[in-house]
Amino acid sequence: MIKLTNVTKYFQTNTDRKYILQNTTLTIPEGNIGILGRNGAGKSTLMRMLGKIEFPQEGSITSEKTFSWPLGLGGGFVGNMTGRANVKFVCNLYGKNKDETRKIIEYVQSFSELGDYFDMPIKTYSSGMKGRLGFGLSLAFDFDYMLIDETLSVGDARFKTKAKESLKKKIENCNVVLVSHDMKTLSEMCQTGLLVHEGKLHFYEQVDEAIERYNEINTKGK
């Protein structure tokens, strides 16, 4: 269960505030959650708040569950370090021993299919390569919730299929919070839906209901 209590989140512009959430109180039951919303609505910001990368100006988001770092095309890796070094660094942060670290490095290297780039600096990677590295790294750790931001869209068709199947297997033992513009993927992977729209967060017990409302907003413009 995830609980939002009087949450307000905004970004200051030159003349005004851009609100992502305004005084939002909501309890989200456990399960696989799809997050929908127009571009700029605040989907990724909400996910970063769940992962404790960003915080609301007011209110709180609480849960007894553990959350992965938010995965997306931007990564969050150290650019001057190699892929291998970044993976080792994360292992150290999470207290993995030498043998555990070795196994995680081997897994991520194999899964990401980066070849020689695995031992090259992250700053030489394309956004897709960062996404593949980050996705493989997340699969190598155990969390109650995996936070995935459009990562399934990276790579060619074969890698997309591989990523989706790997995630399906992973969430047999954990939950996922997924931001995606692919409605088919959201429908397949998630049970419930969150729609971020005009500073409000709407919860739907069925993700297909959230998708239907999202499509209405895009069609009617409100």
Rank of each mutant, 00 (worst) to 15 (best):
T82S: 13
I104Q: 00
R132E: 04
I61D: 10
Y107M: 10
S138F: 09
K96P: 07
A157S: 11
K88N: 08
F67H: 10
K52L: 15
K43P: 01
Y125H: 03
F159Q: 00
C174M: 06
V78F: 14
Y117F: 11
N39L: 06
K170P: 05
Y117Q: 12
L137Y: 02
V87H: 01
M129G: 00
I122W: 01
N92H: 12
I33M: 04
R48Y: 08
F89G: 10
Y94I: 02
V154E: 02
D119F: 05
S68Y: 05
E100C: 10
D144E: 14
G155F: 00
K160N: 06
G37F: 03
T124D: 13
L139F: 03
G75Q: 10
M49L: 14
Q109P: 09
G37N: 09
T101G: 12
K164M: 10
K52E: 13
F67M: 13
F143V: 11
G79W: 03
G59L: 08
D156E: 09
L147M: 13
M129N: 03
S68L: 12
K162I: 02
E150G: 13
G79C: 04
L36T: 03
K52R: 13
K169L: 15
L147Q: 14
T66A: 15
K168P: 14
G76P: 00
I105F: 06
M81Q: 09
K43Y: 00
G95H: 14
F135G: 10
S60L: 11
G72F: 02
F67D: 07
K96A: 06
N39Q: 08
S60G: 11
C91W: 01
D144V: 10
G42V: 01
E113K: 11
K169W: 14
I35A: 05
G131R: 02
S166C: 06
G128F: 03
G34A: 12
I148A: 13
A140M: 05
R158H: 14
F111K: 08
A85R: 15
F118W: 03
F55N: 14
M47Y: 11
S153H: 04
T62K: 14
E165W: 08
D99G: 08
